[in-house]
Design a protein around this nucleic acid. Sequence first.
DNA 1: CTGACTGCAAAATCTTTGCAAAGAC
DNA 2: GTCTTTGCAAAGATTTTGCAGTCAG
Lengths: 153, 153
Amino acid sequence: MANTISYEDVLKNFKKLLKSNNLKYTTQRELILKIIYDNSGHFTPEDIYNLIKESYPEVKLGIATVYRTLTLLEDAHIVSSISFGTQGKKYEFGLKEHHDHLVCLECGGIEEFYDESIEKQQVLIAKKHNFKMTNHIMKITGVCEACQTKKTN
Amino acid sequence: MANTISYEDVLKNFKKLLKSNNLKYTTQRELILKIIYDNSGHFTPEDIYNLIKESYPEVKLGIATVYRTLTLLEDAHIVSSISFGTQGKKYEFGLKEHHDHLVCLECGGIEEFYDESIEKQQVLIAKKHNFKMTNHIMKITGVCEACQTKKTN
DNA sequence: CTGACTGCAAAATCTTTGCAAAGAC
DNA sequence: GTCTTTGCAAAGATTTTGCAGTCAG
C-alpha cells in the first residue's frame, strides 16, 4: 500500500514533534524512521537494527535505542505495530491508508488489504456495545498464494 | 457466549485425543481443561495456574505444565488464544460459536461479538487474494461502557 | 514394567531499565 | 553548559527446556 505522504513531510512533522516535546533530533532516530519509511514492509525491532547496521555501519546503535524509538514513533502514530503472540511484534510505517493484514503461516509474509464494508461494520459493532473504539485490527491467517504453489511442486 | 457442547462430551473427546496420540490422561490435564471450560472467560497461563492452586490446593502443579497443556489443547483446537503484544496471551475455551473480541484498554476486559457480514466478507477477501484462510481474528480496542462511566464520575 | 508426564530450576526470548559517557541545542 | 540520548550490560517478564523422579496404563 503506497505511502500517502512524502519523506520530507514525515521528517518535518517528526522534527516538529520532537521539538514540541523537548526531545532531540538524533542520527539514530532519523535512521530508524527512514528505514521504516523506505522499506515499505513489516519489520521486527531486530530487523530494523540489522538493516541499519548493514546500511550504515559507521553509525553507533544499540538495540535498546531501536525499542525506545519505536515506542516513541508508535505513540506519535507515525508507525504502527502488529503482534505475533509470544514471538514479538512487527512494525510498519503508519501514515498510510488504513488497512488490515493477511499473514502467511508458512513464510511469515504479510499482505495488506482494505475493505470498506468491514470498516463500516466495525463502527456499528462498537456502537452497539457502547464501546468507545480507539483502534481495531483484523488479521487473516493462512497460507499465501506463493506458499501454496510451492507446496504442490 | 454459551458453550455449545457439554463438559462430558469435551472430556470424552479429550480422552480420545490423548489415547490416539499415545498420551496419558492426568489430573493436571483434566483440571486445566475443566477450569477453562467452567470459567467462560479469557485467562493467562498464570491465571489458570493460580485458579487451580486456589481451587485444588492438594494437586501438585507447575507453571510449565500449564504452558505445555495449553499448547496441546490449542493444537487440538480445544482452546484458542488471543495475544496482547508483549504482555502475553489469553486463552479461552475454543469449542463454542465463532466470535471476535472487543478489548478494553482500561480494565483489560474482553467482550465477545459475532457479526455475520464480517465473517462473509473475510471469506471473500481471502479468495480475492488467493489466500488459503485457516483462521482470522478481529480485535476492536477501546474503552468499554463500564470504564467510560467510571471516568465521568 | 515401560514410556509418558511432572515439578523444579535453569535457559531462552524478547523487551526494558540504570548508568556513565556522548551529543544536541 | 545543560539536559536529553545513547550504548552497554544487567534486569525483567514471559515462555520453554533438561532432567530425575513419579505415575498412568
